[in-house]
């Protein structure tokens, strides 16, 4: 069966080579700058930048909940996209039945999306 043979791990080897080269190069660049750059530490210089002031409060503070909402919404829709990939590739072969199955799936998510929209989860003032 052709499907079984498709998992050809050998063809992924160049990706590992790229990973190795990328890590090597970033290491080289870092070490190079550590060797060549002069190090003159200074408590003022190494403090977090805040327009010349000493920092007023800790950075690890509460942030706007909408960033969290965006992340949650993103996960839902990204899973949807991930589901669509194999379906889109094979749509020609698997035909009308699979089309309507996916429409039902998308429809459920669209209802949720409309609900979020109406609730104002997408508003940024």
């Amino acid at each position: 069966m052709a499907i079984v043979n498709h998992l050809d791990l050998q063809s992924y080897l160049p990706i590992v080579a790229f990973l190795a080269m990328g890590l090597t190069m970033s290491l080289v660049l870092l070490v190079l700058s550590l060797l060549r750059g002069k190090s003159r530490p200074d408590p003022e210089k190494n403090a977090p930048y805040e327009c010349g002031f000493k920092e007023f409060s800790d950075t690890r503070v509460k942030f706007d909940v909408r960033f969290y909402l965006v992340a949650i919404l993103f996960i839902i829709f990204d899973i949807e996209v991930a589901f669509l990939f194999p379906w889109a590739k094979n749509l020609k072969e698997i035909g009308i039945y699979s089309f309507w199955s996916m429409i039902v799936f998308l429809g459920v998510l669209t209802v949720a999306f409309v609900y979020e929209w109406m609730k104002g989860a997408l508003e940024w003032e």
């Binding site: 990973l19 890590l23 970033s26 870092l30 700058s33 750059g37 190090s39 403090a47 977090p48």
Partner: peptide, 26 residues
């Protein structure tokens, strides 16, 4: 750029601070 000083801020998490650019670049 290579000849500039590498600054690791005192309040930073040093390991993550170094990993981030390596990750982006790789």
């Amino acid at each position: 750029l290579v000849h500039k000083e590498t600054i690791i801020p005192t309040k930073a998490n040093p390991l993550l601070y170094i990993i981030a650019p390596v990750l982006t670049f790789t």
